[in-house]
Amino acid sequence: MTFLITCPNCGPREALEFSFGGETTRRASPSATDRELAAALYFRRNVNGWQTEWWVHQSGCRAWFLAERHTTTNEIRRTYRPQDRPRDEEQEAAPA
């Protein structure tokens, strides 16, 4: 991966410095139904388009942050810290 990612702490760096954490997910609660649990554990959106996802600056500050990346062009239009995540932006995992 040779595209650049802007770490919220360190600035733009080569993607090789980072580890990918997957698209955002929501964990199932302890009272989840079977279907809700399976959806949270396994089912994914995997969009061909803009995706909100996690990255960690493995070779740098080791902080986790979120990015909005287009999964075909690998263009990243935004990166931000988890604390700056609007609560309602936490997307559902695949609906049960």
Partner: peptide, 14 residues
Amino acid sequence: IEPYTSYSQESTLD
């Protein structure tokens, strides 16, 4: 496979 998800079929230098 590449360690991240993508629909890009390009080659990368690394």
